[in-house]
Design a protein around this nucleic acid. Structure first.
Lengths: 357, 357
DNA sequence: TATTTTTGTTTAAACGATTAAACACGCAGC
DNA sequence: GCTGCGTGTTTAATCGTTTAAACAAAAATA
């Protein structure tokens, strides 16, 4: 196996002690060491292609230069993009990132946290699932530097980076109202997670503020396991309700994907028969035959802040940084105003032939 | 900071030596240790909420139970899905996975490899960028267990898991031909990577076998940096060529996304004016107004085999396992046969109104 | 010249585990 | 009573670093 060169090997070859080699290679005690010896040691280290054993170093210094990132599912484009940004950002500060997916399962989540702690990560960036408050609290008791991402628990004081979901939902609904829709539905998760509650509440509040009616069937809650069938049922229910919705706000990109897949196969047309808005961006949204208006989270900023909060937290434990970022509504075709949809306004590239062939 | 309990703490509390605690906790020397002591030690370990310091353990045992996975871009859905599968698979064998994205840059790739080696990963699963042969060879010389993923270098003998890209391309083109297309183009990467060459060659061979003409402008090579503009130019060139293509095979999901975005905005219709096929699946493909026929890689199998090959390779270094898996063509609307496209065959849900509103 | 300071380097303990080898002790066999 | 064995446990070295402290020799100061 890999019998890599160690400090000792260099020391032996240079005729000095291992300690000295360590000092030189870490540029410690720069004043004391003779230029000649330093030079010689560096040369030999180069020749032998030495690179330090992080395991040993970490064991001694109690610092691994590793951060743990736990998201709900790394294969979800939203998480994947964020993960990528965080990985890059961490790397710029000489940190390696290790990832894990909790699948929204608090048990799996707990296990992941333990694994990461055993590996002695220096800190954690976490998107916690529901019912994981106890895990978070235990991390706090252990003084593990920690930043919550995309989610937070109102009862627990931690650093976090999230967007203002309530305002985002409101803005989306208000936009739908402004474009002439009045029967606005929402499909979102049946979850106690605070950020999802806020999405839901923002929707409800926006309707109330505008004095619009909210039919029972218009707010559909689905399980967070993302069951395609459930989501399709939800869409069908809203569309066959009496009165039926003329707009839907999707609470996540997964929900949107499943819903749009169904809508694509139905005979109704977006945006004339139905307007849609989605939380979070996916490339898919731009490729839908009627590009979908969406709520855009500032991923770059979220990732950067999460890392910088964590770094600060690691320097002096106890520091708490929190921020609610603003999401922006990116308006596309799927919410074209009703009054722009008259036959007279048909786009020039108009073709006969439907969407299905 | 986190002053976790160590073996010594348990030993002290139990009035035994640290060694004994280690033996008990690892179920070593089961025959020798008295049931009573074992019981007591386990209890105390539980009380103190002990969990082993992997750093120390790894340093001693020279085994980290970690595998490194390097893909080109973890935020690409193809990589993300594969990563997820590998993560799960590894976890089942008590391995933690650490990821990295090379961005197709051999320098960045080399750096990633070094970082992972310094962290003493037990093995690597790698999707190597072009010009990284030397890195791979150096890994081999160091006897680092290694499996190449999705790609391979014909000149280097390593374990790998890939699909038969040549056959996949051929099958795709043959399908296009069977559906009545004769002017078939391809957009793929201008790369020396073997698997991309094979995709290209499969396309060329299929045309040749069928005695079809291949216009110069029909094979468009774009840089692997995925420049949207380049890809759009390529599409425009093929469509405005004389004669213009009536079908396009996209060499990757990124290329497909960029191309379809453009096509979506043009006045031509899929599949009547243009048929399209894509390498690799994305949800986006199902959401395109004419769901896109694609070449499906058996991701589950790829991930599982990669991990299992790596595990074997770690057990006895030197073992080489290679496999070319078969990709399957999933036929959707975007390649509907010409003869099925007559007005008489219009689907029932047909609506007036184009794709653009 | 004697003493202190500076400069260059080494010693040795430590991080938290693993593990071969040693040890102590009771007990069976001859 | 001596030898040998089985059982239960401890000793001590080791993995590859870091780092405070000690040391020795040279340079500066008195």
């Amino acid at each position: 196996m890999q019998k890599r060169v160690s400090l000792k090997d260099i020391a032996a070859k240079a005729g000095v002690s291992a300690a000295l080699v360590s000092y030189v290679l870490n540029n410690r005690m720069s004043g004391r060491i003779s230029a000649a010896t330093a030079q010689k040691i560096k040369e030999i280290a180069g020749q032998l292609n030495y690179s330090t054993n992080q395991l040993a170093k970490s064991l001694k210094t109690n610092k691994t230069n590793t951060i743990g990132l736990i998201v709900s599912d790394i294969s979800n484009p939203f998480s994947a993009n964020l993960a990528r940004i965080i990985e890059n950002e961490a790397e710029e500060h000489q940190y390696t990132t290790i990832f894990g997916s909790s699948d929204e399962d608090p048990v799996k989540f707990d296990k992941l946290v333990r694994t990461m702690l055993n590996r002695k990560v220096d800190g954690l960036i976490i998107s916690p699932p529901a019912k994981s408050e106890t895990v978070i609290e235990s991390l706090q008791q252990q003084d593990i530097p920690l930043v919550l991402l995309d989610r937070y628990f109102p009862g627990i004081t931690t650093s976090y980076v999230i967007i203002d979901n309530y305002a985002a939902s409101m803005e989306a609904v208000n936009h739908l109202i402004a474009t002439g829709r009045t029967r606005i539905g929402m499909i979102t998760y049946d979850s106690e997670l605070q950020h999802l509650q806020e999405r839901k509440n923002g929707y409800i509040a926006a309707l109330k503020n505008s004095g619009l009616h909210l039919e029972n069937t218009w707010l559909q809650l689905v399980g967070i396991e993302n069951n395609q069938q459930h989501i399709e049922d939800a869409v069908r229910t809203m569309l066959s309700a009496n009165p039926a919705v003329d707009a839907i706000l999707f609470g996540s990109n997964k929900i949107a994907t499943s819903s749009l897949k169904l809508i694509n196969s139905l005979s109704l047309r977006v945006p004339c028969d139905l307007a849609v808005i989605c939380f979070d961006h996916t490339e898919m949204l731009d490729l839908f035959y009627s590009p979908v208006t969406y709520i855009k989270q500032p991923l770059e900023e979220i990732g950067q802040l999460a890392v910088s909060y964590l770094l600060r937290n690691m320097q002096d434990t106890g520091t708490i940084d929190t921020i609610h970022l603003k999401a922006t509504l990116v308006i596309q075709q799927s919410t074209k105003p009703f009054n722009a949809l008259q036959p007279a306004n048909k786009p020039p590239v108009q073709k006969t032939g439907g969407a299905n062939f």
